[in-house]
């Protein structure tokens, strides 16, 4: 079975702030890490491979340094890795990102199963998976909470629909976005890390893709544009109370009565 996992490098902290005076973004700490939700996708791939055999390829789209997440995937047990990277891919929104990744996947070959994480902690849209599935014209199920069974030409999974759980059978090739907690992700192994140190990561640039038209990638291929960014609103009508605990409790009780909650 050929499995592909989509993973992304995200900022290590989310403490990006806008300086209220200058309007400049302040960056505290630039370290990066693997999107935590993608660890579950990798783990799912490893578990399926352990049962069914085959190989796992991890792919990421991002700047050159994001190859680090492919290395991490190797040390968890992933077999092959590819980095889709080109200056021309910068500024991509969901549509352009999904298109670029789907172009990259086409280049890497045919896969029975493509796995995505639930969402990223920076993009945070949970949309890239379903959009890739559309570009590849394969069926897709999101919110996968359990893998019930993997058959020869299809698999049975549980999709969490909030009010109920659907057990669905989906034909290969297909794409699944897996929920957090589907499996407990294993830790990277030091031995695997050493063993895969020299393993090649295939780099895919615009020139390698089937569609080489610059207009379809990066900012130019993105229908949405960020017009401006600004700090979130803070509340303007507010009262701050201080005093002894007893005074505060009294004041709060009076307020709750006034607001008719008691």
């Amino acid at each position: 079975m050929k499995i592909l996992v989509c993973i992304k490098q995200v900022p290590g902290t989310n403490k990006v702030e806008v300086d209220p005076v200058t309007g400049v973004l302040k960056r505290n700490g630039v370290e990066s890490k693997m999107n935590p939700y993608d660890l579950y996708a990798i783990e799912t791939a490893l578990r399926i491979k352990e049962k069914m055999g085959g190989s796992i390829t991890a792919v990421t789209m991002g700047p050159p340094q994001s190859a680090a997440v492919i290395r991490e995937a190797f040390s968890m047990g992933v077999d092959y890795g590819a980095l889709i990277s080109d200056r021309k891919f910068g500024g991509a929104d969901v549509l352009a990102t999904s298109y670029t990744i789907s172009q990259g996947i086409k280049l890497l070959g045919e896969f029975d199963l493509i796995l995505c994480g639930k969402q990223t902690t920076d993009g945070d849209t949970a949309q890239v998976g379903p959009e890739i599935s559309e570009y590849l014209n394969i069926p897709c199920v999101s919110n996968v909470s359990t893998i019930v069974e993997v058959q020869k030409d299809s698999m049975t999974v549980e999709m969490d629909m909030t009010t109920d759980v659907e057990v669905v059978k989906i034909k290969f090739p297909c794409l699944l976005s897996v929920d957090k907690d589907i499996f407990m992700p294993r830790l990277p192994s030091y031995i695997k890390k050493q063993a895969t140190k020299e393993r090649e990561i295939k780099v895919i640039t615009l020139n390698d893709l089937e569609d080489k038209d610059e207009k379809h990638y990066g900012l130019n291929g993105s229908p949405t544009q960020v017009e401006r960014i600004f700090p979130p609103d803070t509340n303007t009508h507010q009262e701050i109370w201080s005093g002894t605990s007893m005074e505060l409790a009294n004041q709060l009780y009076k307020k709750l009565r006034e607001l008719k909650f008691v």
Partner: peptide
Amino acid sequence: TTIGRQLAPRLAARLRTGLTAD
């Protein structure tokens, strides 16, 4: 919702248009 988060992106990609989440 669970449904909207699957349907909207698939449709947006089919229509080759922009989709802003949440």
